[in-house]
Amino acid sequence: MTEEPNLSAQEMLKKLTPALSRRTRIRAVAALLAGLAGAVFVTVLWWSEPGELPGRTRLAFGVLTAFCLAWAGYGGWLLTCRVPLFATDRVVAAWLGLAASVTTTGLMAVVAVQRGTGLVLALAAGGVFVAAALVLAVRAHRRRAALLRRMRELTGEQ
């Protein structure tokens, strides 16, 4: 049986505190609550629609609900993490945002084609969101790579 080294109270508290900063925890709670609220709102709106909805409307409601639940899952995952993430949370959030913007742009384009109106406007509006999400994804990947590179430098790993 090996004995644990004596830890000071300060060292023990450091081991007990979560690895996430207050700002990250606030973002996680916001993502969790917004995702849950969005999922409840969209689902209630979907269920309260009278009569049979067209297929593309059901698809849109389903996709919106799925994205809301994905954000809620992201927030829950982030809150339960107790290890340093090295910006993994930013990468995951960026990919969620990119997936949501690409999917939404695709759905807007399909609706515009079916109605015969405003395909260029739908693609332009969606393109702005896709471009913004793509920039955030690239920045998140670069930040994560820089943090991991710095960690390897400090620990002497190759």
Rank of each mutant, 00 (worst) to 15 (best):
S101L: 02
G97D: 05
A100K: 11
V92P: 00
A109P: 11
F86A: 14
F86P: 02
A100N: 10
V83L: 11
V111G: 01
D89Q: 14
A100Q: 12
L98F: 02
F86Q: 12
L98P: 04
V110H: 11
A93H: 03
V111F: 03
T88Q: 11
G97M: 06
T105Y: 11
M108K: 09
L96V: 05
V102F: 08
R82F: 08
R82T: 07
T88C: 01
F86E: 13
A109K: 10
T105K: 05
P84H: 15
V91Y: 03
D89V: 01
W95Y: 13
T105C: 14
A87S: 14
L98I: 05
A99C: 13
T88E: 14
S101G: 02
T88N: 10
V92N: 06
L98W: 03
L107M: 15
A87P: 02
P84S: 15
T103V: 12
D89P: 00
S101Y: 03
L85P: 02
T104C: 03
A99L: 14
P84D: 15
L98Q: 07
W95K: 08
A93E: 06
V102N: 07
S101T: 07
L98R: 06
A94V: 00
T88S: 13
A94C: 03
S101I: 01
V102P: 00
V83T: 12
V111D: 05
D89A: 15
S101P: 00
A93C: 02
V102H: 03
F86V: 04
A94F: 04
G97H: 05
L107S: 04
F86T: 08
L98K: 06
V91I: 09
V111R: 07
W95T: 01
A100G: 04
V83G: 07
R82A: 10
S101H: 02
A93W: 06
M108G: 12
V110T: 13
V92A: 10
D89L: 10
F86D: 13
T105R: 10
T104S: 13
L96R: 02
V92H: 06
V83C: 00
L107H: 05
V83R: 15
A87W: 08
G106V: 08
V92F: 03
V102T: 12
L107T: 05
A100P: 00
R90V: 01
T103Y: 02
T105Q: 12
L98M: 06
A109H: 14
V111L: 06
A99K: 07
M108Q: 05
P84C: 02
R90Q: 07
V110A: 12
V102Y: 10
L85F: 01
A100V: 00
A93K: 07
L96H: 00
V92T: 09
V110C: 09
A109D: 11
G106L: 10
A93V: 02
A87Q: 09
T103E: 01
V92D: 01
A87N: 13
D89F: 11
W95E: 04
R90K: 11
A93P: 05
V110Q: 11
G97S: 08
T88P: 01
A93G: 03
M108F: 09
T105G: 15
L107A: 06
A93I: 00
V83Y: 13
M108N: 14
V110Y: 15
A109Q: 10
T104M: 07
D89M: 10
A87C: 09
